[in-house]
Design a protein around this nucleic acid. Structure first.
Lengths: 338, 338
DNA sequence: CAGGGTCTTGTAACCGGTATCAGATACCGG
DNA sequence: CCGGTATCTGATACCGGTTACAAGACCCTG
């Protein structure tokens, strides 16, 4: 009868209680080697009676694995990272691995935290600009599989990202179709690979259309309040026809800033975002939807393959995105779908 | 110098290489006992040369702890859980603990997954309706500290929640002040403790005001599309003056549904939500803000105290909320202060 | 110079499992 | 009836650290 144990119960206690060796207990529990039904029953009875639960630490040490993966991201605020992590956790769970999360918050100690994490997992996903390539390569060389997500892959690690260049082109062409000619790009091009690629796709599209692209993006962070501030700056000068933002938060902040300043969107200026977060729907923001869950899930799958000992050359997956047209880029004939 | 090791390097290799015993290596690395500078240097040199990194598994097994906490939640979609988890991770990180996440997704195997998780952590936070009280009590009895978050605490475990009753009252009174008399409450009262408490606070406020409260809430889930469907249902009958929703997602879906049906909000019906997610701001939704990050952080702190061996009677923390008035409940004189 | 204390270090017993290897038992056919 | 083989089981060496205990080296004092 299951005893409330203080978990001092070890496999040796069970063995003694059942009158067998610890090896036999292990065999019964793992089913590795056939065991006589009679002994089996005795062992199981002892297990039940003592309320024995094998120690995960002991097991993993003996097995030489952790049965856990890590994921490193900058900061879970905003829907993007949360969704990616969720997709990751879901897939990892299906593959029988627990998930350790680590948010760097831009802390100085981030590299050490990541190294530490690397020591307690079988594999690791690194998201965006959290630690330098050095750290990633060092970990990869320790033999711990690493997959990078939404950042360029150093050396020989796998990577997963959403398509940016082509969608930036489609988005930009859509704005050109609205008659926009003078553009501003808003986003942190140094901090985020995604932003950088969106910027370069945007720029390329303009050049192809024979329009003078801005020399450089307005370097702002990726959060709402920075969008609000950017609106003030823009209002102070000559308004462009369209502002292409590197993510939805900035775009939403920008729209809010314009609203406060009495600047009509899309009447006087078009605004677009990126990611298609929930708020984008309610704000009528034209944006590019990325498959956030799928990004995480793919990373988990790639990692799993590596952990199982695959030695193929690095894989680089690029997931497709989808242009989502709403009202913030200008009026459209048919009622806005979605 | 620092060799790219395949991580077969153990403390014994280091000891041999430095010509000392493993105990001395351990001492140097942990600084537990003084060691002669000369030996110290030899050991450190060997460590560097071999690229030695102590195995976390070996260490934790010897120390008898995991240096990791778990957190269990139903599903990370929606901003609420993500924020709670983030606040939790941040605090746990500061307290020197890694975080293992587990999303149950309403899977049947959830109880076993949680038990499994419990075996690899020093303590556990359980969020909302993920597993039954039985499972929680079983784990607590195994001697693993548990803190429940946004759900009633079984037996002797700590709990953290946001205040619901009082804020439901304030919210309802605000609506009464707008002249609303006929109410509907939308939310999954069976599935979520929060919803249930909001419902009962709402009901109590109406009764106190001498208004007939609805007999029961409209039982719907907590996601957007269920709000949209609810709008259709409501439009088909006689519209109430106000719909109080148990969370923002449902409220936003409801507003969207009303919009499609041509029902003006707040002109013909007022709508309120709960949580104050980002989209609520853009939709002008009146709502109640909960301190989501703080909920997670408090849970982490309570857990830490227990893990350190505190034996006080269970603590139950209730965090304050804040009423956020926007436009969805009716017009207000001064400009909406956000 | 002997005796006692302090400092440093090594030996070995843990932590709690897994898995190899070999011994014991039972069963088989010739 | 006996050797050979298949089955089951136990003893034990791991996995990779930490740490209690004891021993050796050294210094100091009476």
């Amino acid at each position: 009868m299951a005893v409330a144990n203080r978990d001092g119960v070890t496999i040796r206690d069970v063995a003694a209680h059942a009158g067998v060796s610890i090896a036999t207990v292990s065999r019964v529990l793992r089913g590795t080697t056939p065991v006589t039904p009679a002994t089996r029953d005795r062992v199981l009875a002892a297990v039940a009676e003592l309320g024995f639960r094998p120690s995960a630490l002991g097991r993993f040490l003996a097995e030489g694995r952790h049965a856990a993966n890590g994921i490193v991201f900058p900061d879970l605020s905003g829907p993007y990272y949360a969704e990616v992590v969720l997709g990751y956790e879901e897939m990892a769970g299906e593959l029988g691995r627990s998930v350790l999360i680590l948010s760097t918050h831009g802390r100085d100690a981030a590299p050490d935290m990541v190294r530490e994490l690397a020591g307690r997992v079988d594999g690791l996903v690194v998201l965006g600009r959290t630690v330098s390539d050095d750290v990633i390569e060092e970990i990869a060389q320790r033999g711990i599989p690493v997959v990078v997500l939404a950042r360029p892959a150093p050396s020989a690690v796998d990577s997963v990202k959403a398509e940016n260049d082509e969608s930036a082109r489609r988005l930009t062409e859509h704005l050109l179709g609205h008659g926009c000619r003078r553009f501003v790009f808003l986003g942190d091009v140094n901090g985020s690979t995604d932003s950088m690629e969106r910027w370069s796709g945007f720029r390329a599209a303009l050049e192809r259309a024979g329009i003078t692209a801005p020399d450089e993006p307005r370097g702002v962070g990726l959060r709402e309040e920075e969008g609000v501030r950017a609106a003030d700056d823009l209002v102070a000068g000559e308004l462009p026809d369209a502002v292409v933002c590197a993510n939805d938060e900035v775009a939403l902040g920008l729209m809010e800033g314009f609203r406060r300043a009495g600047v009509d969107v899309p009447g006087r200026v078009a605004v677009t975002g990126w990611d298609d977060v929930m708020a984008a729907r309610y704000a009528g923001l034209t944006t590019v939807r990325q498959p956030m869950r799928a990004l995480g899930a793919h990373a988990a799958r790639l990692l799993d393959i590596r952990i199982r000992g695959d030695a193929e050359p690095p894989r680089h997956e690029v997931l497709p995105t989808e242009l989502v047209i709403r009202d913030s880029c200008g009026p459209h004939e048919p009622g806005n779908p979605d």
